[in-house]
Design a protein around this nucleic acid. Structure first.
Length: 542
DNA sequence: AATATGATCAACCGCAAGAGC
DNA sequence: AGCTCTTGCGGTTGATCATAT
């Protein structure tokens, strides 16, 4: 880490003095001699009585300044240097729970000061806001949403239940939590996303941090915290757990950004003029997940090749060999949006299903700068062998093809920008840091293709599919899959107007659903066939 | 090379709560 | 009860360095 120069206070050395009872008190940066005077005094007399320190030692600093200097720089066991990853994770979690309670947060981080944490958070806040990214990982948001509605904050030992409630328009109860209200964050934004599972009576949402099993449903309403608590205009999506149950609805206060796969891809493989639901799925991994550095691989499939198919099915590719999908959508293609927007904004999309129909909406809601973190790498796992799926999966896919892409929101933006850049300069799309590996028993005749992106970009953060082949084999197979990969990046102008590398557009023929972070849903579903399932079992997302 | 901007860190300020009288 | 002092907290500012323009 690069250490930058500390803040030398203006006039610190000489003439910036304040008067305290006739004694000129110095301000500004501390000198080594002052530090030594302060440290020796505290060693002899202990902490406290900071004002008397000035009187007894001749140190011309006010008590507050002495206390601050000691607490932030001189006291023993202070850690120096940047925060570790673990510390950063803790800070994020604590901030989600406590808000700007720096001292309380510091109490949880031995050797760290409130000032350090505050500075870190403010920098993070600044950076993420500039990037238009959510401040909290979606799983954190959801976690605290759930706990808030169970009056969970600061009482974690007393409240072990976390439940997922059907949507409600009731306002949330006030909370000190910085996390968003359960009601739609922006009442003016047409941004609700109601999601209905099938065969579900209740749904449990358990956080990886929790080892508790819900026993009673919450009394307060719930809706998903799909927005940044710091800035409502930013969206994010939770990682949540939705076991198999019945008729669960939840509303996302904000909708996910929408990105558009290449229409040529759709056209070539799946074009069907009679298909009313001609859409392709895109599912992001959980951006900023605190709980995993694995690349999430999950996808929501929407049938777009079959004129009659109206079920969208969610799968988790971490459990790609599992016997059944985690849940399914039942969208009615009655109201798909068209747009000719040329705004360089993200296009939001959402369903608003009711008992009889489900409509799909889009809305351009915010712009994002192109600035991106540097620690993002792209990883692609590809396979195109239907035989890699279980019989049930094959059965579930009957009647329509599936194609999935899994990436974080950030990666979406990055990839989109790159694709657009490639388009703008009329050259083949980049394949940056692309790695691919099919699963075992790969052949070239299948129908499945999955792309995932590593969130943290470490070299270890490889394809989440467990059964990777050797690099040589991958290389060979990439030759056969490269075309498919390329098509994902080879966006065409007729797939929608895209400006500044940041927007995408849905058309009637190319309906895109961008759904994030349903990994745990699938994982939990797979591992739990009852309503009492724990995140502790969700190894894929820890 | 000069300038602008961003990142980082340290320190200050005002306010409020608590303790002591 | 009211006042003063101390302490702690959170917001803000300023300095310096790195990087971009």
């Amino acid at each position: 880490m690069v250490m930058y120069g500390g803040g030398a206070w203006k006039d610190g050395e000489s003439n910036n003095h304040i008067s305290d009872g006739g004694v000129a008190l110095k301000k500004g940066p501390w000198m080594a001699a002052e530090d030594e005077m302060l440290a020796s005094y505290v060693r002899e007399n202990g902490e406290g009585n900071w004002n008397s320190l000035q009187k007894n030692t001749g140190l011309t600093r006010c008590g507050k300044s002495c206390r601050l200097r000691w607490a932030n720089h001189l006291r023993p066991n202070l850690k120096k240097g940047s925060f570790t990853d673990d510390e950063e994770h803790i800070i994020i979690q604590l901030h989600a729970q406590l808000g700007n309670k720096w001292a309380r947060m510091a109490a949880q981080l031995p050797g760290r000061t409130d000032n350090e944490i505050k500075n870190y958070w403010n920098m993070r806040l600044k950076r993420l806001q500039r990037q238009g990214l959510p401040l909290y990982p979606p799983d954190i948001i959801l976690y605290h949403q759930l706990h808030k509605h169970n009056h969970y904050h600061d009482q974690q030992h007393q409240h072990n239940q976390m439940y997922f409630q059907p949507q409600s328009s009731e306002p949330s109860t006030p909370s000190s939590s910085p996390l968003p209200s359960p009601t739609p964050v922006n009442a003016n934004a047409s941004s609700s996303f109601t999601f209905q599972t099938t065969n579900a009576s209740t749904a449990n949402l358990l956080h990886p941090l929790s080892s508790h099993t819900p026993t009673t449903p919450p009394q307060s309403p719930f809706s998903s915290p799909f927005s940044s608590p710091q800035n409502n205009q930013y969206t994010t999506l939770p990682v949540f757990s939705l076991p198999c149950s019945q008729n669960v609805n939840f509303t996302f206060p904000r909708t996910p950004p929408l990105l558009q796969p290449p229409s040529s891809f759709l056209d070539k493989r799946y074009n069907n003029a009679n298909t009313s639901l001609n859409c392709i799925n895109r599912v992001s991994t959980a951006p900023f997940s605190l709980f995993t550095r694995e690349s999430y691989t999950s996808f929501l499939t929407l049938p777009y090749s079959s004129p009659t198919a109206q079920n969208a099915t969610y799968y988790n590719t971490n459990n790609i060999y599992s016997s059944s999908p985690s849940f399914s959508l039942n969208p009615s293609p009655s109201s798909y949006p068209t747009t000719s927007s040329s705004s360089p904004s993200f296009l939001h999309s959402y369903y608003t299903p009711n008992s009889s129909s489900t409509s799909f909406h889009t809305n351009t809601t915010y712009s994002m700068k192109q600035e991106l973190p540097s620690n993002q790498t792209l990883q692609i796992c590809a396979f195109n062998n239907v035989n890699n799926f279980t019989d049930n999966e094959k059965h579930n896919s009957t009647g329509f093809h599936r194609r999935s892409i899994s990436c974080s929101l950030l990666e979406d933006v990055l990839k989109e920008a790159e694709a657009l850049e490639d388009i703008s300069v009329d050259r083949p799309p980049k394949r940056r840091q692309l790695t691919a590996s099919p699963p075992k028993n790969h052949n070239n005749n299948g129908d499945f293709f999955s792309v995932s992106f590593g969130q943290y970009g470490s070299s270890e953060n490889t394809c989440s599919l467990q059964d990777l082949k050797s690099k040589e084999e991958v290389s060979l197979q990439m030759n056969t899959m490269q075309e498919d990969v390329a098509k994902f990046f080879d966006w065409e102008s007729n797939s929608g107007e895209i400006l500044n590398g940041q927007s995408s557009v849905v058309t009637d023929d190319n309906l895109v659903l961008d759904v994030h972070q349903f990994e745990s849903l699938a994982a939990n579903y797979e591992q739990n066939n009852n309503n009492n399932c724990s995140w502790d079992d969700l190894h894929e997302i820890r």
